[in-house]
């Protein structure tokens, strides 16, 4: 029973597993609205594990139906490869000769699109300062639009620079979940995996304890619960008498926290 519960918390980018929380619904609707509005750039940022990638992935899948959006979850660190890849994906067969930023800019300026291409860049803090400056120049052509997601790092300072700031149409900040959202997240994850009985095992005290260790961070929560259900799976197999199927044992939550390194014991 617990092995299926454990698998529900494998950290994945599958947008079909996107959990609708109050916070995430609001932010997603905000992001969709900003995409429909006039150009330049939308910035999505927040600490690791707050759900940026999942949010972008869901947005990409929704926009894909309308055709004209490109999602790059892994950064392309080589500048020429980055711009030639974008050119190829936007212009298909027309971009065979484009190998750098200047050629792409000229091509964009001479092109018209029925629907403006939206380029979604995840982990943008890994791009070099030069590439980021060139992305800014591309957005100035008003032929394409960028949605950039990055962690709260020094790169954020670069983006926040005045000349860059004027081109950012909107900033969306993702924060860690509240206790209430965390409870909904865990329960919905388990319900999606048809683990109704396990879902009912999480009372408010257990949620509070999990929140204490993860601070509402969804990636940390996934890690903790993956380990927790691993422990349950072991006890279910080797010491079935010690497994209470009515409530989650706090001892096991603490053991999981030790296992994943949230507690230094």
């Amino acid at each position: 029973m617990f092995n299926r519960a454990r698998d529900a918390f494998i950290d994945t980018m599958d947008d079909t597993l996107f959990i609708k929380l109050d916070k995430s619904i609001e932010l997603y609707e905000d992001l969709k609205l900003s995409v429909q509005k006039p150009l330049k750039m939308v910035l999505v940022y927040g600490e690791p594990g707050t759900g940026k990638s999942m949010l972008l992935n869901r947005l990409y899948n929704d926009l894909e139906e309308q055709k004209g959006s490109l999602f790059y979850p892994i950064p392309m660190l080589d500048e020429d490869i980055f711009f030639s890849t974008i050119a190829k994906d936007i212009f298909y067969d027309k971009s065979n000769n484009i190998t750098n930023f200047s050629e792409l800019t000229i091509l964009l300026q001479n092109s018209t699109f029925k629907q403006v291409p939206i380029i979604i860049l995840d982990e943008a803090q890994l791009y070099s300062q030069t590439i980021m400056e060139k992305i800014r120049l591309l957005s100035d052509t008003r032929k394409i639009k960028f949605i950039i997601a990055l962690h709260k790092t020094e790169k954020e300072d670069l983006v926040a620079k005045e000349h860059f700031q004027t081109r950012i149409w909107k900033s969306i900040v993702l924060k860690n979940s509240t206790k209430e959202d965390l409870k909904v997240y865990i329960q919905k994850k388990l319900l999606n995996a048809d683990m109704f009985q396990v879902s009912n095992m999480f009372d408010l005290k257990a949620i509070k304890l999990i929140y204490k260790f993860t601070d509402g961070n969804l990636r940390d929560t996934n890690k903790l619960l993956y380990s927790l259900f691993g422990i349950y799976e072991y006890y279910e197999e080797h010491k079935p008498s010690s497994v209470n199927s009515l409530t989650i044992k706090h001892k096991y939550i603490e053991m999981a926290a030790i296992d994943v390194g949230f507690i230094n014991a």
């Binding site: 422990i231 072991y234 006890y235 001892k251 603490e254 053991m255 030790i258 507690i263 014991a265």
Partner: peptide, 14 residues
Amino acid sequence: MHNLEQLEKRWFIY
């Protein structure tokens, strides 16, 4: 979960 006994010991220490 191979080292569960050790994990339990660490929990007692904690």
